[in-house]
């Protein structure tokens, strides 16, 4: 089971400009891949950026192996468009898995903009739940769900979203960040209620500046580049099947690279 890591990176120039909804791209070393990670938090005074990530492959495992005081070769951002946060209203924030991390700065920003904030955070199991305390601080209501019932509601985040909407509560906006299947499910639940729903798309990226088109997604039947046109889009217009298909593009290569890395690090048994 992949483990979750939290990392603070000293990057004062980026911390000064970062906004909720944005991400960074990093490259650990000379032979490294460029990978995008959401800005989970920023501290303008200390000049730090917090990231939360799951060690799912070689790059994230390499990242997880870094120790306090180590340096990352390239750290680029803030990229993407900040979340749209107007004045006041009611927002439902849904975070699944590591998706809780990018939801957090939004909770804070929405709260500060005078919104009533209902947050729903979910994970497969209680021990994978993130940032419950931080989320509670900026939420008027906080719901927890786990797939295995080890904490909170036994089931999916969508169950709670549905309950809230069915109860007749007037919701201005739903924001869902998490695995694509989760975001698709949330979109499915909110569509009949006609509630504006925003998701943050985690497509494969290379440059993050609109130069390569690796991150292209289909939104309302139009091709968009997630890195510069997004990463947030109207969930009801997103082609999630395409997103998921494209995310699997390098699975064989990624798997091979990860296995090789583990072998090298842990001593080979194969």
């Amino acid at each position: 089971m992949p483990t979750i890591f939290l990392m603070d990176i000293e990057a004062p120039r980026i911390a000064k400009k970062a906004q909720p909804g944005q991400f960074i791209i990093l490259r650990i070393d000379e032979t490294g891949e460029r990978i995008p990670l959401t800005i989970a938090d920023f501290d303008r005074k200390k000049g730090t950026i917090a990231m939360i990530f799951q060690a799912v492959g070689k790059t994230t495992a390499k990242l997880a192996a870094l120790k306090t005081g180590d340096a990352i070769l390239d750290f680029i951002g803030p990229l993407g468009n900040p979340s749209e946060i107007e004045k006041g209203g009611m927002v439902v924030l849904v975070g699944g898995g590591v998706g809780v991390a990018p939801i957090f700065p939004q909770a804070r920003a929405f709260k500060e903009a005078g919104y009533k904030v209902i947050s729903i955070i979910g994970a497969r199991s209680a021990n994978l739940l993130l940032w419950e305390d931080r989320m509670r601080e900026f939420s008027d209501e906080l719901y927890i769900t786990t797939d295995d019932g080890t904490k909170g509601h036994h089931g999916f985040v969508t169950d709670i979203v549905k309950k809230i909407l069915e109860s007749g509560t007037k919701v201005d906006r739903v924001i869902a960040i998490g695995p694509p299947v989760m975001m698709r499910a949330v979109a499915g639940v909110t569509r009949p209620f006609n509630v504006k729903t925003i998701v943050s798309l985690n497509s494969i990226m290379v440059d993050g500046t609109g130069m390569c088109g690796a991150c292209r997604v289909l939104v309302g039947n139009e091709t968009k580049f997630a890195c510069v046109d997004g990463p947030e889009f109207d969930a009801h217009l997103v082609d999630f099947t395409l997103l998921m298909n494209r995310l699997s593009m390098y699975q064989p290569e990624e798997k091979a690279a990860f296995e090789k890395y583990k072998c090298e690090r842990e001593g080979c048994t194969c």
Partner: peptide, 9 residues
């Protein structure tokens, strides 16, 4: 690749 981490098809 795999000496460099970025894959290409």
């Amino acid at each position: 690749f795999p000496e460099y981490d970025t894959p290409v098809r």
